[in-house]
Design a protein around this nucleic acid. Sequence first.
DNA 1: ACTCGTCTTTGAATCGTTTCATTTGTTACG
DNA 2: CGTAACAAATGAAACGATTCAAAGACGAGT
Lengths: 338, 338
Amino acid sequence: MSQTASIKDVATHAQVAVGTVSNVLNYPDRVSQRTKERVLKSIAELGFVRNDAARQLRAGQSRTIGLIVLDVGNPFFSSVARAAEDAAAALGSVVLVGDSGQDTSREAHYMDLFQEQRVQGLLISPVGDVTERIDTLRERGVPTVLVDQLADENRCSSVSVDDDAGGYLAAKHLLDTGRRRLAFVGTPSIRQVAHRLKGAQRAVAEVPGATIEVLDSAGQTVLAGRQVGNKLVERDPEKRPEAAFCSNDLLALGLMQSLTMLRTVRIPEDIALIGYDDIDFAISAVVPLSSIRQPTEALGRTAIELLAEEQDSGGTKHRAVVFTPELVVRQSTGGSPD
Amino acid sequence: MSQTASIKDVATHAQVAVGTVSNVLNYPDRVSQRTKERVLKSIAELGFVRNDAARQLRAGQSRTIGLIVLDVGNPFFSSVARAAEDAAAALGSVVLVGDSGQDTSREAHYMDLFQEQRVQGLLISPVGDVTERIDTLRERGVPTVLVDQLADENRCSSVSVDDDAGGYLAAKHLLDTGRRRLAFVGTPSIRQVAHRLKGAQRAVAEVPGATIEVLDSAGQTVLAGRQVGNKLVERDPEKRPEAAFCSNDLLALGLMQSLTMLRTVRIPEDIALIGYDDIDFAISAVVPLSSIRQPTEALGRTAIELLAEEQDSGGTKHRAVVFTPELVVRQSTGGSPD
DNA sequence: ACTCGTCTTTGAATCGTTTCATTTGTTACG
DNA sequence: CGTAACAAATGAAACGATTCAAAGACGAGT
């Protein structure tokens, strides 16, 4: 009893065959009431716990779904992850979350790991170009769904939010409130961010005289935002933009911190600010932050659904679901003060 | 090639024995250069990927460490989790994170799951009383470390932060700034919260005429904080507390939202506010939030270290590491405006 | 030519479960 | 009483890796 009991020990103890114990566990109906009780009693007495590795080995597949996100600390991803977990739980599966930290080698590492684990499927918000690896995975029977990135529907399923539309919404809103010299803060090397920028530029192009400057931040964190903010504060006030669109809320909050720190810059009077994601903390900011809301819950849930579809079709049918983001106006762009 | 190749397929393809392939993978030095090359070539051609389940089965143990937290959405836990992941990665292990959501049945569910997975060890921030289950786990060879909760050093290892001291710090600070009618907002049914309350009450008892009222919140989220705040706003201003100590920052931010919404309550003039955890967003709040900082990075790292110690000693030696929290003064309690 | 030692390679046994073709036991019916 | 029909229980085979005792290959030394 000191170490773990196996199904064989249970069988011996209950004086039945191993197959019978297995049946009690997996097909209770095939076993008579009497033996079932005896076996269950033995299981309890020996403290038997199924060995999942053996089970998987036999089954050839685990009950696990891999999810690789760019940053678990980011509320956007933790929200998507939670929704996916809940949806997976309903199907009797578990989600393992891996954090690539926007690093292609960590991303590859997790892909290897999940493949070794023979996961049922993979949800991934990719850093690099992974289409080839995904094809390979599919050949090996691991269906994959791209998360937060549109995929070619002929090759791969995906759930995403229309980033171009989101960027357009944000920039249009800033332009509508009268601003002309805009700044875009973010890391356009990330595909989603590039789309948001493109959407913003589209909106800017529609308004004569409007410009948008791109400030490349080192990352998408509060800290990175603060660094960009410090540089803006140092600038000649004339040369500061009238409004900034940050590619996510963390950046925007960081930017806001450094802008408001010295009280020389007023938000939204001197610089209007809009973020992206509408995380819970956006509303609690120094100046409540306008943002673009993404349906994280739907993203996570749908990702699991698409994975199930892939599995059912044997990886032959793909579907790309695109959600539409939504503008949330708050004080940081001059919206109503609540 | 359509499905996954096994080590046997590789052996056949490379015209060697399975044992040799295994050696190439695990003990490259035992294999001659020539065969090694041949085997590696076959591995590449067949796209062979180790089956982790089979490996685990044979090894009797996985390279996985389970971590059960109260809420992954809470930056405190996601920070601890990340630190644990990094520390585990250095040892070649992977951390699986389970979210109990403060629900004992979900907690039990994850404990079962991790046991089935034969995890190397378990880190848990428990909801209910799990000492007995932990004893059972240890008997079965699964060492466990309590996270964010002090354990009896004779029974179990633990990493925690002195919550009583933290509560004392917070309340003392409010009292030092002249407030006398304090409120404690939180869910004392959670052990850690109860300790923070106790520490706060200790500080209050030292000051004649000071009182502390307990406002039980429904949860520890931004939303729960907002609900408590709404009730406070409805109160006769005379009967409102002069200061509130919230058992975590999310609650404090929520409380701050509803208090400042109608602009009838000024922070910190009418009500001073202090939170707990010092999450990244605390500094970005409407009124930058004073808080109690916990060394999350050290918590996660140390948890993994203690787990390693447990493993090495075969679960006979335990150690309880207690960290000391730190007061961070900001504007919400009248601190300097940065 | 023979023995010894070293370096490689072999392949059967093992881990704990599930599966499934068989066997055993029981009941019903002609 | 014989047998068909069905239910329950059996136990060997399989999953894919690792391990390890044994065998094989080869060169050096006598």
